[in-house]
Simulated assay, not measured.
Amino acid sequence: MYCGYTACILSMVEDNSTFAPEFFLLGFTSQEDLQVICFVLFLAIYVVSLVGNLGVITLIRIDSCLHTPMYFFLSHLSLLDACYSSTIIPQALLNFLVKRKAISFMRCAAQLFSFATCATAECYVLAAMAYDRYVAICNPLLYPVVMSRRLCIGMLAGAYLAGVLSSAIHTVSIFHLPFCHSRRINHFFCDGPPLLALSCSDARLSGMVVSAVVGFNVLSTTVFILVSYWLVLSVVLQIRSAAGRHRAFSTCASHLVSVTLYYGSCLFMYLRPGSTATLDHDKLVSVLYAVVVPMLNPLIYSLRNTEMKNAVRKAQGRLLSFLFPHVP
């Protein structure tokens, strides 16, 4: 979808007068025994993340009961999680095994662009899911009319478009800078803050642009989500039966947990004054929103969701019937 934008951006960053043929990702540690542990841990997380997210997408596609706006957005949330964890983790796994942890200038720019696109689009998909819950609880009778297929596709297209445009600004703002000193990135992937720390020119303006773009995306969607849930809460509290209130809250619980984990780590990472001394802490925060959250989302949305559990049981039944057709 955004390959053309990537080619355009890479052609722009090639004009950098101090073009760096490659960078070196320092990762977490230089101790070989710890690198092996990190490799096993990241590999396990990546496998669980891919299986979980692709499993959610498959379940939603094959089960007609899940062909609703809520699960439409959830399938794309899973797609984004699978994509941006795949943008980061394979390179990290390779670096755990090799001594020369190099990444080319072009691959670094492409990694940042792809990651920023998916991460930004996820913010807007989470906001769209909050609006879906608002309509479902506050206007249940109008839900099929309001949450039309046309609106859902339009909101999703807007999310992806915002991701591409924001990441284009993000990437160009960073990679137009000269990197004439150290090319050792104190991180396990090409992220904005550690790259800005490497520039030998005044990177304050670029840092302000990146913070402004990220801040607009995160804060605008955060406000939208908070307003949506404030309206939801005002309606739920008017429900007289405890069972009804519990049922209404349970439809929002998974989304709220996912939003809290994702937005909390993003706000801490980007919307604060940066310094070289905090880059080591940033790596741990990045693991949360870039590696752990994509793994947890399928579990968050499946374990407490009755419809997803039923879909899993149906899929298991179909698989068993296919494998053992003669067993009653």
Rank of each mutant, 00 (worst) to 15 (best):
S49F: 01
S49C: 07
S49I: 00
L50M: 13
L50A: 08
V51M: 13
V51W: 13
V51Q: 13
G52I: 02
L54C: 08
G55M: 04
V56R: 14
V56I: 14
I57H: 12
T58D: 07
L59W: 10
I60E: 02
I60R: 06
R61N: 07
I62M: 10
I62R: 15
S64V: 09
C65Q: 14
L66Q: 04
L66T: 02
L66H: 03
H67C: 07
T68S: 13
P69R: 10
P69T: 07
M70K: 15
M70D: 12
M70R: 15
M70E: 13
Y71M: 04
F72L: 06
F72P: 03
F72S: 11
F73N: 13
F73H: 13
L74R: 15
L74M: 12
H76G: 04
L77Q: 15
S78E: 06
L80P: 04
L80K: 12
A82P: 01
C83E: 07
C83L: 09
C83P: 00
C83G: 06
C83Y: 07
Y84W: 12
S85V: 10
S86N: 02
S86R: 01
T87L: 01
T87P: 00
T87F: 08
I88S: 06
I88W: 04
I88Y: 04
I89E: 03
P90E: 05
Q91P: 00
A92E: 04
L94W: 13
L94V: 08
L94P: 00
F96N: 11
F96E: 11
F96Y: 13
V98N: 07
V98C: 03
K101D: 02
A102N: 12
A102D: 08
I103A: 01
I103M: 10
I103W: 02
I103S: 02
F105T: 06
F105G: 06
M106P: 00
R107N: 14
C108D: 02
C108R: 02
A109R: 02
A109K: 03
A109P: 00
Q111T: 05
L112V: 05
L112G: 11
S114H: 12
F115S: 10
A116I: 05
A116N: 14
A116R: 15
A116C: 10
T117A: 01
T117Y: 06
C118V: 01
A119E: 10
T120E: 04
A121T: 03
A121R: 01
E122Q: 14
Y124A: 11
Y124R: 15
Y124M: 12
L126E: 09
A127M: 11
A127W: 14
A127R: 14
A127S: 15
A128W: 05
M129W: 03
A130I: 04
A130C: 08
Y131I: 06
Y131A: 07
Y131L: 10
D132T: 15
D132H: 12
R133Q: 14
R133K: 15
Y134H: 13
Y134F: 09
A136W: 11
I137M: 05
I137H: 04
I137C: 03
C138L: 02
C138M: 05
C138D: 03
N139V: 05
N139I: 04
N139F: 09
N139D: 09
P140A: 05
L141M: 09
L141D: 14
L141A: 12
